[in-house]
Amino acid sequence: MSVSRSELLRWQFDLTWSLFDHHLAAPAPEDFLWEPAALCWTVRPDGTPDWADTEPEPVPVPTIAWLTWHIGWWWSVALDHANRRTPREREEITWPGEDSAIAWLRGLREEWLVVLERLTDDDLDVSSGYPWGEEAGLTFAHTVAWVNSELMKNVSEIGQLRLLRSARPKASG
Rank of each mutant, 00 (worst) to 15 (best):
Ile71Trp: 01
Trp132His: 12
Ala78Phe: 05
Thr63His: 11
Leu67Thr: 09
Arg109Val: 02
Asp46Ile: 00
Asp80Arg: 10
Val114Lys: 04
Asp53Thr: 08
Leu105Ala: 09
Val43Cys: 13
Ser127Ile: 15
Glu134Asp: 09
Pro60Arg: 05
Glu98Val: 05
Gly72Arg: 01
Asp80Trp: 06
His81Gly: 00
Val61Trp: 02
Asp80Leu: 12
Leu116Glu: 01
Leu67Trp: 10
Pro49Lys: 01
Ile93Met: 04
Trp73Thr: 08
Leu79His: 04
Ser76Met: 03
Arg106Lys: 14
Gly137Glu: 07
Leu116Ser: 05
Glu98Asn: 08
Leu113His: 13
Ser128Ile: 15
Pro62Met: 09
Pro96Lys: 07
Leu105Gly: 00
Pro45Ser: 12
Val126Cys: 02
His81Arg: 14
Ala103Gln: 12
Gly129Met: 07
Asn83Cys: 09
Thr86Val: 15
Trp95Lys: 10
Glu91Phe: 00
Val59Asp: 03
Trp69Ala: 08
Thr94Val: 11
Thr42His: 02
Leu119Thr: 10
Trp51Gln: 14
Arg106Ser: 11
Leu116Val: 08
Gly47Trp: 09
Leu105Thr: 12
Pro60Asp: 04
Trp132Ile: 08
Pro60Ala: 05
Pro58Trp: 08
Ala78Tyr: 13
Trp112Ile: 04
Asp80Cys: 14
Glu111Ala: 09
Glu134Val: 09
Glu111Trp: 10
Ile64His: 13
Gly47Glu: 00
Gly97Lys: 15
Thr120Asn: 05
Trp112Glu: 02
Gly133Met: 06
Gly133Ile: 12
Asp122Trp: 08
Arg85Lys: 05
Ser100Asn: 15
